[in-house]
Nucleic acid binder design. Structure first.
Length: 463
RNA sequence: GCACCCAUCGUCUAGCCCGGCCUAGGACACUGCCUUUUCACGGCGGCGACUGGGGUUCGAAUCCCCAUGGGUGUACCA
């Protein structure tokens, strides 16, 4: 049997980090089992639906380098089939028309709450022989079992039971004829041949309801795996106030997709003590056994660490391109020399930064033009003595014929010796003069990269 | 409220199912030292947890019960 998983996001305008995680796990499980992952957009809520939102999710998946099998299915487009099933269920005696008004329902909800019952609808139309009231468009409700225990055997959560009293005859077709999510999911999953439903734990309670539909239709119930939720750093539901919740934001911040995948995977899944896990290993190792049961908090520090790891491994050309993307986005019109500097300094830059955005920040010392803005510490280094040293360095560098790393180092050390001071006393003022800061990558190398003209220009500027 | 789920360092987790190998392992963060022209990187150390209480057992992080805490669900949303 071919294993078929599915990725069914609802288009809410962006791709939530939790959605991405679910997608990743479905994808890994499918890949691990040489199965397929289908992609379906849960777009039945027309009020909230927009093409841009669909686009955002597709782009998010593509960025994460997660692919899917077959066409993207629109749940909305399958509406006729859902409706057909709803009527079929009525015909089979598994569902019925209900003519309750919203007011009546509200009253039932209140009394149910007062009595501590979870199922609020009192099933008054379930087997009613009453003549339907005129002028009211009915909904279709499914007949949930009246007694007994419902069991869900979940690959992550184990066997979970619930009493039938907890289930009510929920609506499968609205009064306006539009199918509900509960019906649509089941019909689509069945029609798409989905064998494994891997989704967030927030859907767990729905599983009991969905099983009612499967059973009423006599369809095979899929294998379920409910993943623990991702919470914010404070343990509360991950929301906007925690910072970035959308995949797009991480992309813009300069995280690498492979880092994102690795981080998301390790959140609530483990394989012994392994932390850095390549996609190939992830596919090879991924299994339900490794999934934890408790919710995990999102930790930016760890993400940063993993990202910096993958940045060190990343190809320089790619990193340069990503850097230029960020420069473009912030409206910095880069020159060919910017690109040249990035290339030359990339080996060093990528070992320092945690994100591409951070890398771009660090790279400023190479491509900045015009007046040098000094930070406080840098300015303090350029006192009388500091300026004197920098002047001497300027002369020495000007006279240097082989303007490379090694010779620059020799020249600087020579100045230090002739002045009788440690190298730090020489380099720090120079660093201040050249970069306007007190921390930067290796100056010898930076000087070589900048070239004699630019170095002398900056020295001139600063003193 | 009711239902369901969860519970090991600050965080992610290993160990738990199949009790002894656990004076509880790894990673991030924090921190000390080393390296060093600065900041990073890197290397070597340190700090730091079985939520509480009852059982069961010769023995419990591991099994059972209760409490507490956290999460989710409870729509003609998905």
């Amino acid at each position: 049997m071919t294993i078929v998983t599915r990725f069914p996001p609802s288009p809410t305008g962006f791709m939530h980090i939790g959605t991405a995680r679910t997608g990743l796990f479905n994808w890994l499980y499918a890949k691990h089992n040489k199965g397929k992952m289908r992609f379906r957009i849960e777009d039945t809520d027309r009020a909230r639906h927009s093409e841009a939102a669909v686009e955002a999710i597709i782009n998010g998946l593509k960025w994460l380098e997660i692919d899917w099998d077959g066409d993207i299915i629109s749940q909305y487009a399958c509406g006729a089939r859902h409706t057909e099933i709803a009527h079929e269920l009525v015909k089979r005696g598994e569902a019925y028309y209900c003519y309750c008004t919203p007011d009546e329902l509200e009253k039932m909800r209140e009394s149910a709450k007062a009595e501590g019952r979870i199922a609020s609808y009192d099933r008054r139309w379930r087997d009613s022989k009453n003549t339907p009231p005129a002028g009211i468009k009915p909904v279709i409700r499914i007949k949930a079992p009246l007694s007994g225990e419902q069991l869900v055997n979940d690959k992550v959560q184990g066997e979970v039971r619930v009493n039938a009293e907890q289930l009510d005859d929920f609506i499968i077709l609205r009064s306006d004829g539009v199918p509900t999510y509960m019906l649509a999911v089941v019909v689509d999953d069945h029609d798409m041949g989905v064998t494994h439903v891997i989704r967030g734990d927030d859907h767990f309670n729905n599983t009991f309801r969905q099983n009612v539909i499967y059973q009423a239709m006599g369809w095979d119930i899929p294998v379920y795996a409910h993943l623990p939720l991702i919470l914010g750093p404070d343990g509360a539901k991950l929301s906007k106030r925690h910072g970035a919740t959308g995949v797009e934001e991480y992309r813009n911040l300069g995280y690498l997709p492979e880092a994102m995948r690795n981080y998301l995977l390790r959140l609530c899944w483990s394989h012994g003590d392994d932390e850095i896990i390549s996609t190939e290993q992830a596919i090879e190792w991924f299994d339900f056994d490794g999934i934890g049961k408790s919710p995990a908090r999102f930790d930016f520090d760890k993400l940063n660490f993993i990202n910096s790891h993958y940045m060190k491994l990343a190809d320089n050309n790619r990193l340069v391109d990503l850097s230029l993307d960020i420069l473009n986005r912030v409206g910095h019109s880069y020159s060919p020399s910017t690109k040249k500097y990035l290339f030359a300094a990339m080996d060093e830059l990528k070992t320092r930064a945690k994100t591409i955005a951070g890398l771009v920040d660090d790279s400023r010392i190479y491509w900045m033009t015009g007046a040098i803005t000094m930070d406080e510490k840098a300015a303090a280094l350029l006192d009388v003595a500091g300026i004197a040293i920098v002047k001497k360095l300027g002369v020495a560098l000007k006279n240097l014929s082989n303007f490379d790393n090694a010779n620059i180092e020799l020249a600087c050390k020579a100045i230090g010796e002739s002045e009788g001071v440690k190298l730090g006393k020489v380099m720090m003022p120079l660093r201040a003069a050249l970069t306007g800061t007190t921390s930067s990558p290796s100056l010898f190398h930076a000087i070589e990269i900048l070239g004699k003209d630019e170095v002398l220009r900056r020295i001139e500027q600063s003193i």
